[in-house]
Design a protein around this nucleic acid. Structure first.
Lengths: 193, 193
DNA sequence: GTCTATAAGCCGATAGAC
DNA sequence: GTCTATCGGCTTATAGAC
């Protein structure tokens, strides 16, 4: 791919993730990419098309590592631990992807959400759903998978809010602490010591 | 309160929740409120002050019902069921509040998140945290409380995405189904049938 | 492939009449 | 308390030179 086009996609994805669609102007993107605003239109027909392309670009090659590391013959409980830890690391390292996920959940129409599910989450969600079916055959594996996603995404994103909530401590932002909490909750619930 | 001011707060809260801060213009708000854009400035000094006031307005009297219904002498497990069900109903009925929560999580600075935690969530979060401490003394009650919030918020918001994810069915959008799933997961985890 | 220049319109905010 | 009119600036997008 042409370097300018790729640079545009990179900076656009960052800005859209940080400031949202309406909050990001073509001028900001151009300045961050080191060209003028008019030059963007040589690469993309409109702001909306640039947004779509940037979101798609941000999503590529995101899920391979997780699916690979889960294809082992370890017991299901161990694979769940690995899964939660990897998801936390992956999404912690990529706040832009996380933010775009939330923004699409809020603003995305059916078409974009369908694309998100099929193009980005397809492999990963099937692996998670399969693991949950193996681990908890008596539960609805779709809902269990969505619970895993909700726990990971929300705990990571709520670290900004967490210090102001009752009992919030700085350790609650550490990934191993979150991983241990989520894994324990999923495996045993709140009742079993 | 003057009726125009209250109408402004209502429509502004809706628009900010639906389209975000940058995506909502003073002209849109004015049109929805039935006055001209300039007239808003008689009631609020700036767009930012209107946003703060609208968010605060949306948040008032949101938590009283939950805290009241949890102040019973039922066993802790029953109170958890009631809590999850009430939270789901409350947040399902108020998508604007839900969206503002996510938008503040993404865009809010420390000051606004601190205000959110103390002005809006204070009572409710303390009640939930206390319940979780009673129910699971061996776990970190802060993290358990944040998990409850994450599960409820995410399951409700992800209903738009859910149909495109593996195993997604229309029943997964029904509140009793979600309530049962979340409660079971919290109480027993995924392993116990 | 990038530039300058510009069109056409929306933005937040203000001034002043009523 | 709401209006009309307006300012200066920013927006997306296009035209045309290089």
């Amino acid at each position: 791919m042409e370097p300018t086009r790729e640079r545009l996609l990179t900076v656009a994805a960052e800005l859209f993730a940080e400031q949202g669609y309406a909050g990001t102007s073509m001028r900001k993107i151009a300045r961050a990419a080191g060209i003028t605003q008019a030059a963007i239109y040589h690469h993309f027909a409109s702001k909306e098309q640039l947004y779509y392309a940037a979101v798609k670009f941000l999503q590529e090659e995101k899920t391979t590592r997780v699916t690979e590391q889960l294809a082992t013959d370890l017991p299901a409980e161990e694979r769940l631990k690995t899964l939660v830890q990897l998801l936390l690391e992956l999404l912690d390292a990529d706040p832009h992807f996380r933010h775009i996920y939330f923004r699409e959940l809020l603003d995305g129409d059916e078409i974009r959400l369908c694309e998100l599910a099929t193009n980005v989450f397809a492999d990963l969600s099937h692996v998670i759903e399969g693991l949950m079916r193996e681990l908890a055959p008596h539960l609805d594996s779709h809902l269990t998978m969505m619970s895993v996603a909700g726990l990971v995404f929300h705990h990571l994103e709520a670290r900004k809010l967490s210090p102001f909530m009752p009992g919030g401590k700085s350790e609650h932002s550490e990934l191993p602490v979150l991983a241990d909490h989520i894994t324990t909750l999923l495996l045993k619930g709140v009742r079993t010591p």
